[in-house]
Design a protein around this nucleic acid. Structure first.
Ligand code: MN
Ligand code: MN
Ligand code: ZN
Ligand code: ZN
Lengths: 168, 168
DNA sequence: TTCTTAATTAGTAAATATTCCTATTTATCG
DNA sequence: CGATAAATAGGAATATTTACTAATTAAGAA
């Protein structure tokens, strides 16, 4: 799910403006980390970002990736998703959207859901507190993992409930 | 959010039947762990279950808690929730419901949302794969953490985006 | 451009969290 | 009661995340 060079440039430009407006330094590490998240719609986890950024900047440390993505999240430059059973993932798409997570391969895919976004907040929920954000997670088999056309991408099965497996 | 003794008995009875039907052993550890999750609607995490179960069974090991809760999740005896920014939590309420998560104290509260449950799956999502389950997470400040009546439960603020804090 | 300085980073240690290993215990069934 | 396969405790091993600190560097001033 690559983004086009045009999209990436536009996002990077917005990103650099936001960093400057925040009054913090625009370092090569920050640029590389942002670009790595913005490069695709894949929702990479920390380890993936780290591995890919190292190809451009071989000396970046894991600590920098953690620190930097945490900073971006606080600045609203990236969103975070934590699909059940998988690690925290990052998303440079900050427009309102929701996620479909494949219970087999972990693919995390965006979709829009206007019908949900415009639904009123039920009384049962507003009684609990002030709702500030809402998010839907759909789970199931993604198109690549679906049986039949046997077009598996070679990923192995994965527990779907967030727990480890236990011996028989 | 304690459950009544009546509810707990009923749940425990169903639990024991399910364990027997699954053809696995009904151990004191399994009973204690199940009862601890069923005791409240608090969605405890592993560490909390471990700590509380130890009060009854001081020798229970953390490994057993991990293993056992994973087993229960596979058997459908508990559900798992992983609120953004908090650890994996367990829920003995297996009826369809959704969650409100307090971004300050982490309280994870159940609510029903019929309007959502009956919503059709949007084409944008079914194009991605076969949707097998759906879950809504609302985030915001819970009633106890809301400002004003200053009735804070003493919990400290917490990052809301699933990342660690970074130095200023 | 060069200088100054506070912010940022790399590298590593430390702290957490989770899973694995295996000798011992035990629930279940005959 | 035994027999036995399943399950557990306890500790080791991994994996993940955060903390620490000396060295580097982006950004603004001169
Ligand atoms: Mn997304
Ligand atoms: Mn629940
Ligand atoms: Zn898949
Ligand atoms: Zn709260």
């Amino acid at each position: 799910m690559k983004r086009t060079p045009g999209e990436i440039s536009k996002m990077t430009e917005r990103f650099e403006g936001a960093i400057r407006r925040a009054g913090i330094k625009l370092t090569p590490q920050r640029i590389a980390i942002y670009r790595e998240v913005a490069r695709t719609a894949d929702h990479p986890d920390i380890e993936t970002v780290f591995r890919n950024v190292r190809r451009k900047l071989p000396s970046v440390s894991l600590d920098t990736v953690y620190r930097t993505l945490g900073l971006f999240a606080d600045l609203g430059l990236v969103m975070t998703v934590r699909p059940l059973g998988y690690r925290l993932r990052f998303d440079a798409n900050t427009s309102p959207h929701h996620h479909f997570v494949c219970t087999r391969c972990g693919a995390t895919l965006d979709f829009e859901y206007r019908e949900f976004d415009t639904l009123r907040i039920p009384a049962a929920a507003s009684a609990l507190g002030r709702v500030e954000s809402r998010h839907v997670e759909f789970r199931g088999l993604c198109a690549s993992c679906a049986p039949g056309p046997a077009r598996s991408k070679g990923k192995s099965a994965k527990r779907t409930n967030g727990t480890r497996s236990h011996r028989p």
